[in-house]
Design a protein around this nucleic acid. Structure first.
Length: 361
DNA sequence: AACGCGGGGAC
DNA sequence: GTCCCAGCGTT
């Protein structure tokens, strides 16, 4: 096909998508109502590698607590972590916090509107920047998320066995319309989510099926090519619920790398023996009870988490630890939410038994 | 270019 | 149980 013809095809693609979006696209997502750059930004960060349905309750909570950049800029990182508990990819929470400080100090609390300024914010890469610029500012920038990749690979019948983002970016940019870039970006994502689904795409309802090479050559079940599956490593982890006075739990801040980086979790040792040695070292009785076992599946590993309980009367004060009251809000990783809740209930029970015993004597 | 980073929806 | 999601930052 000549360059001129290709150009014509590209125009038809965006025109069809924009027209389709008006009738069949998504218009009632919470970040689309009274749209502004702040909402688009927060939603785009939450939606990185995370399905819409999962994001919805987190987004609502976030907007209630931080309705605008000013409110967000007064936050503490711990508060954002607390709100992020269970959503995963916790680096995103940190990046939102850091960005809020940059927007306060550099941009006078106004969300920036140029590509350079936006991509300069932590946690915002080329695709998220493109999404914000098109959706919130109606500027002519491309996106390349999971939906768009799948649509492009199918439409152009690209059999990619490895990373071909460089080419896909080129395709994505070539297809951009001159106007209505806000509707177009929404349209191509909606198409991927609603029509051009990973499994059983609804080609009969697709506005661009007639020009789709995979549809034409019956390749929609082959493309996109399945990526070779990763073998999950199994990992055993040991966490220790150190309980003091039946209402305090010892929490420890994770290092700035690895899983749950910078998040507060219960005390962690490689083995139970390591924990025993440590307790002896600080003159505590090494009374450790097995408390629970949790299997936690992640994308890249399978975790077997053993939880132990230790009752102590005192504990040395240190900067890397803090005592969390069982009634305080939790800013931690998902597996510990339920465990701490369970522990809280049991401690309440133990406390009431203790109370009764005292009363009886 | 490849990898690590969470948790869960969809099938 | 498997795949992968409105990706980014690091190596």
């Amino acid at each position: 096909m000549s360059g001129k013809d290709q150009n014509k095809e590209n125009k038809k693609f965006s025109k069809n998508l924009i027209s389709w979006q008006k009738d069949f696209g998504r218009h009632n997502l919470p970040w689309q109502k009274q749209i502004n750059p702040y909402k688009v930004w927060i939603s785009e960060i939450m939606l990185q590698q995370t399905q819409v349905k999962t994001v919805l309750p987190f987004f609502e909570k976030f907007m209630q607590k931080y309705p605008d950049i000013k409110a967000l800029s007064k936050s503490r990182i711990e508060d954002i972590f607390e709100l992020w508990t269970g959503l995963g990819y916790y680096r995103r929470a940190e990046n939102i916090y850091k960005s809020s400080q940059i927007i306060k100090n550099k941009h006078n609390l106004i969300f920036p509107s140029t590509f350079e300024e936006i991509i300069d914010l932590p946690g915002i890469g080329r695709s998220t920047a493109g999404a914000i610029l098109s959706l919130a500012f109606n500027k002519r920038y491309a996106i390349l998320d999971g939906n768009v990749k799948r649509v492009l690979e199918r439409y152009f019948a690209i059999k990619a066995e490895k990373n071909i983002d460089k080419e896909l970016w080129k395709f994505s940019e070539n297809l951009l319309p001159k106007n209505k870039n806000d509707i177009y970006s929404q349209a191509i994502m909606d198409l991927g989510a609603i029509i051009c689904k990973k499994k059983s795409p609804l080609c009969e309802k697709c506005p661009v099926s007639l020009d789709c090479k995979s549809f034409k050559f019956d390749l929609t079940n082959v493309i996109p090519i399945k990526r070779k599956k990763i073998i999950k490593k199994e990992k055993d982890l040991n966490y220790f619920l150190v309980v003091k006075n039946k209402n305090l739990i010892l929490m420890q801040k994770n290092p700035n790398k690895g899983i749950w980086a910078n998040l507060w979790c219960p005390l962690n040792f490689k083995t139970k023996d390591d924990c025993k040695k440590y307790l002896k070292k600080i003159n505590l009785k090494p009374n450790i009870y097995h408390y629970a076992s949790i299997k936690h599946n992640l994308t890249h590993m399978k975790l077997n988490i053993n939880i132990y309980r230790i009752n102590v009367e005192n504990y040395p004060i240190s900067e890397e630890f803090y005592w969390k009251n069982i009634y305080d809000k939790i800013a931690t990783a998902k597996p510990f939410v339920e465990i701490i809740k369970k522990l809280t209930e049991e401690l309440e029970n133990e406390n009431s038994l203790l109370f009764k015993a005292k009363k009886g004597t």
